[in-house]
Design a protein around this nucleic acid. Structure first.
Length: 265
DNA sequence: CTATTTGTTTATCC
DNA sequence: AGGATAAACAAATA
């Protein structure tokens, strides 16, 4: 489910536990979400530690316990985090449960297990949290750098390029479609073929959709208004809010893509 | 039964 | 070498 705004929402679910201590750690070590992780180490070292910070970067989350324990959470396609209150029940796909000193339990669940847990005990930031692309609202995220990237990926459809996390951390399938719809650019256009004025508009729409998604979704999983593509894109037979004409759905860059043929050029 | 899924990694081909 | 594309991962839902 999650793109950057949803990831922010899920990060918020664990934030009330900041300032609480870890009382116990339960996990299903054999689950795929722990691939590459020393779960025994994680389980021992988190005990007694204070949760001091919770942050997101694109689709990655990081929770710092104590001074040197870093827990990464990536939600993949179906991952979720929630804070289970006292007397709540564990569910089938709850792979990680961290009980805190106030009785609340940090739960990570993921049926499809495309998500993953990361863990490091290091004085400085672990690689997976330090070595990240510039975020969409950072000073380093510039039209110039986006242009270079578009030229490097010149032969890929722009839709596929927007999904590349190395340049656009946090953008996923629905945001990419929303951006191209607002910029009136067909998703199957080759990245290298976009005109200068289209690139300017594209850059603006990337930042605009990102800001709007965070504002609407991150606080309480709000539903975007009907004048976005969002509410119309999911199933066949949707209608473009701009033109009233049929939306089209097709696989582009290996992902189901929705666009408005009348509106996008 | 089939097809579909808001993601990433790996393999393979060019 | 580096870019483009498809498959694999896995389970729920329609």
């Amino acid at each position: 489910m999650p793109e950057l705004a949803e990831v922010e929402y899920y990060c918020n679910q664990w934030r009330p536990a900041i300032g609480k201590k870890v009382v116990s750690v339960r996990l299903n070590a054999e689950k795929r979400v722990f691939r590459g992780v020393d779960v025994a180490k994680l389980q021992v070292e988190l005990l007694g530690q204070l949760l001091v910070d919770a942050a997101t970067h694109g689709k990655q989350m990081c929770f710092r316990f104590g001074s040197s324990n870093w827990l990464g959470v990536h939600l993949g396609m179906t991952g979720k985090t929630r804070l289970r209150v006292v007397d709540g029940l564990a569910e089938k796909h709850d792979h990680l449960q961290i009980r805190m000193s106030d009785g609340g339990v940090l739960v990570f669940s993921d049926p499809r297990m495309f998500g993953r847990i990361l863990y490091a005990n290091t004085e400085s930031l672990p690689l997976w949290w330090n070595d990240l692309p510039s975020e969409i609202f950072s000073d380093e995220f510039t039209e110039e750098r986006v242009n270079e990237f578009l030229n490097r990926r010149a032969r890929s459809p722009i839709k596929a390029v927007l999904l590349m996390q190395a340049m656009f951390p946090g953008i996923g399938n629905w945001m990419a479609d929303e951006i191209l719809w607002r910029a009136r650019i067909r998703p199957d256009r080759k990245a290298g073929q976009l005109e200068p004025q289209e690139r300017v508009l594209l850059f603006a729409c990337i930042q605009q959709v990102t800001a709007d998604a965070l504002r609407v979704i991150a606080p309480d999983w709000g539903t975007p208004p009907n004048d976005w593509l969002f509410n119309h894109r999911w199933k066949d037979g949707g209608v473009c809010p701009k033109t009233g004409t049929s939306l089209r759905r097709e696989s582009i860059g290996g992902r189901t893509t929705c666009w408005s043929p009348k509106w996008q050029r």
